[in-house]
């Protein structure tokens, strides 16, 4: 293997925190077309749990490996992936930053250019994620509170994505921001909504993307919530949750004020108050 390139940008977030919205913004920023990039054509990014990519670098079916074995091999998969990419490769992930059973970080430092961590108020996230999974808010809160929460758990059946450790909301945040020791820029979903130019511009600066303010504004406009919702209504969105009616639902903040009961708010604050306070949610 040639020397490692520091070209990987991890677009990390808990699900339903604005990761897809940011990826759409990036696709529009990179696009020369006057038209908005279609939501089903986001070719600029892949996901860290993409089974086909993992299989292709391994040379065997990951479906014949345990989740632990896959995680032992994934740092090497990412290094080879990085090696074949150019100056920057964007990879979305919903996984918590973690070590594998060999004690090696799954997301290797030596290939990481940076982490863009997108955070959202867990009170709103709980409602959005409940809709996404078509589960009750109480069930969703228990996912947010569980340090062993997983996505695509490989037990009795196979998924096109490999198993991912999501962990609890607080663990997820601190794993990337505190534990990883990687260069991280945090972007708040609420700032993307309320001060989009400032939020997206600062993210673009962190990623060393040399674009004029007017180009960033244009990309934000092409990624507006109404545009995305219209696209989903007319042609569907392949990333929509299998049980949910729509991926782009409201695109607003503070829905929790009317959408959560006092007990539900208390339960979230009890588990995540410390991190919520740190990021201005309390």
């Amino acid at each position: 293997m040639p020397e490692a390139k520091k070209n990987m940008v991890w677009l990390a977030s808990y699900p339903k925190s604005g990761n897809t919205w940011f990826r759409i913004f990036l696709s529009n920023l990179f696009s020369d077309s006057p038209l908005a990039v279609h939501i089903n054509d986001l070719t600029e990014t892949t996901i860290s749990s993409n089974r086909s990519i993992i299989d292709s670098y391994l040379g065997m079916h990951s479906s014949e490996l345990t989740a632990e074995e896959i995680d032992k091999l994934r740092p090497q998969v990412f290094k080879r992936f990085s090696n074949e990419k150019g100056e920057t490769a964007y990879v979305k992930t919903h996984e918590a930053w973690t070590l594998n059973s060999l004690g090696i970080p799954i997301f290797p430092k030596e290939i990481t250019k940076g982490v863009l961590y997108i955070i959202r108020n867990p009170l709103d996230l709980a409602i959005s994620y409940a809709f996404h999974n078509n589960e009750s808010i109480d069930e969703t809160i228990s996912i947010l509170n569980n340090e062993f929460s997983k996505l695509c758990e490989q037990k009795l059946k196979l998924n096109i994505q490999t198993q991912q450790l999501l962990s609890s909301w607080s663990n997820h945040v601190s794993s990337w921001i505190d534990d990883s020791k990687l260069p991280v820029h945090v972007i708040r979903y609420e700032d993307m909504l309320e001060h989009p130019l400032n939020a997206f511009k600062r993210a673009a600066d962190f990623l060393h993307l040399k674009y004029e303010e007017s180009e960033i504004k244009k990309a934000i406009n092409k990624s507006s919530f109404d545009t995305l919702k219209d696209m989903e209504t007319s042609e569907g969105f392949k990333e929509r949750g299998i049980h949910s009616e729509a991926f782009f639902r409201k695109g607003k903040s503070n829905e929790w004020e009317s959408g959560l009961s006092k007990n539900q708010i208390d339960e979230i604050v009890k588990h995540h108050g410390k991190i919520m306070k740190r990021f201005g949610y309390l």
Partner: peptide, 16 residues
């Protein structure tokens, strides 16, 4: 090569 294999013309190694 890949993570688990090395390849050449008419010669291939897989190691797990």
């Amino acid at each position: 090569s890949g993570v688990l294999f090395e390849a050449a013309v008419n010669d291939f190694l897989f190691k797990f």
